[in-house]
Nucleic acid binder design. Sequence first.
DNA 1: GGACTGATGGTCT
DNA 2: GACCATCAGTCCC
Length: 200
Amino acid sequence: MAASPERPGLLPLLAGRPEEVAPLLLGAVLRHGDVALRLTEVEAYAGEDDPGSHAYRGPTPRTEVMFGPAGRLYTYFSYGMHVCANVVVGEEGTAAAVLLRAGEVVEGRDIVRQRRPRSSERDLARGPARLCQALDITLEHGGADLGTGPVTIEPGPVRPRWESGPRVGLRQAAERPWRFWLPGEPSVSTYRPAAPRPPR
DNA sequence: GGACTGATGGTCT
DNA sequence: GACCATCAGTCCC
């Protein structure tokens, strides 16, 4: 292994503010079984003062885990067919989270190809639902502790250079520049503003 | 590459 | 009953 600076333990850092924690996750390696992804794109969500957050209206059975301690997974079912995953961050009692938007497959590529046979290389884990498919993260992993598994996270090399911009796919508060990505990565999803409500 | 659209079901009002 | 933190397919350039 070439000597690259490693962050000593990511989990203690997750208790910070979501927009500060999110860039720390870039380059980190998320592992489940024999598949590992290097995170290339994430998105920060605050809690009850963020209209874009699921937790905006306070805790519900679905969003309860977001109000718990940092370092757990918050998973949800989206658009009737997709699973997306967040890392819960911030102090216990707040509802901050970081949505895992995209990653690059660094281990287990053959397994991911079997799971997503029609995907091109760059699409294997591009987008939050595809990322979950690639890692086989399901709703059952909601509440799982990244410190104990089965899904774990390892700090990546320090990445001083990242970019940020508007969040994707939100109608509420999409203007907060809380999407963070590693520039130049093919696995970063293209920015697409939330579609305006179709007239009816 | 980009624009557009249908699929599909949990969650909350 | 409306609202989605989406994806994949199709059509067009």
